[in-house]
Design a protein around this nucleic acid. Structure first.
Lengths: 153, 153
DNA sequence: CTTGACTCCGTACCAAGGTACAGGGCTTAT
DNA sequence: ATAAGCCCTGTACCTTGGTACGGAGTCAAG
């Protein structure tokens, strides 16, 4: 089954790594990297060693990019791709992954909200004029905390 | 001025790296790392090479940790520390740093809110039952997007 | 004065997600 | 058949914030 690649690819469009990179909006090295991490289907090779990519690969890379935009790590994306490939995957398995990511995101938002709140308080406490001598922001960071403000919540 | 360290430290408490680590809640190697990155004042050394730390260093590390909790990177913290040391620093310079960090945080929150919204839509679109054949989550990631949903906002 | 706990230094390694070579080998158009 | 412009590989490097290791020197208590 290795001898007639010509046969196999006769009727479909194939691409070289640079073309895929351009079409998918990633770097050539990134494609090699994804291949090594098994995030994309291992492409066949020409006798010269050149990789033979198809539209399938381009779609995979786009899948990866969309999942990344939703905050999935490459490891998580690999799991998703495995779910996608596995015939026995159920809808609820996929949903579970999404729900876990959702929890992550909510938690991160909460952390950032607390940080934002503290920053606002610090900024508001500082008139923005005068020397740093009594800058309440530095004071708070120094922990001397004359104002009774406390950074840890 | 190097000869009489004994003189210099006669009346103040000094600490070895392990003590500082314990008191400040960091690792010994982290202290070396901070020293290398010039985040803490370079400690004097005994003739043996042992570092001589004081309460000042402990306070610096605590400053660093508080600033980290607010999302400042070590590079940004270095700037803050320089502002703190510089006699000519004005309050408004410090406030500007805080305002920039505030903007970063707000932006990150916004990104995550968008991500969260998309995840919720995906999760809601999926009944959680049945095989993955028509899992709307995978469909959306695949970009086929029969539902007209679009991940990019 | 010995022994265990401490410290020193340089270096390598970790996660994550890539990027950047160098030194070769193909391919394709002219 | 030659030259530009692809592609191949392995390896090193990047950022951020550290952690781990190993061999050697030091300190303090008994």
């Amino acid at each position: 089954m290795r001898q007639n690649l010509e046969e196999k690819y006769r009727d479909i469009l194939t691409f070289k790594v640079g073309e895929v990179a351009r079409k998918a909006g990633v770097n050539k090295e990134t494609l090699r990297y994804y291949e090594k991490r098994k995030l994309i289907t291992k492409p066949d090779r020409r006798r010269s060693g050149y990789r033979i990519f198809t539209q399938h690969h381009i779609d995979q890379v786009k899948f990866i990019k969309r999942a990344q935009e939703l905050g999935f790590t490459l490891s998580e994306i690999k799991e998703l791709l495995e779910l996608r490939t596995d015939e026995n995957t159920t809808c609820s398995e996929v949903r579970t992954e999404a729900e876990e990511k959702y929890k992550d995101v909510v938690e991160k938002i909460e952390d950032l909200q607390r940080i934002k709140k503290t920053l606002v308080e610090l900024i508001d406490s500082c008139s923005g004029s005068g020397p740093k001598g009594d800058c309440p922001i530095l004071e708070a960071l120094e922990g001397e905390n004359k104002t009774g403000r406390n950074l840890r919540n």
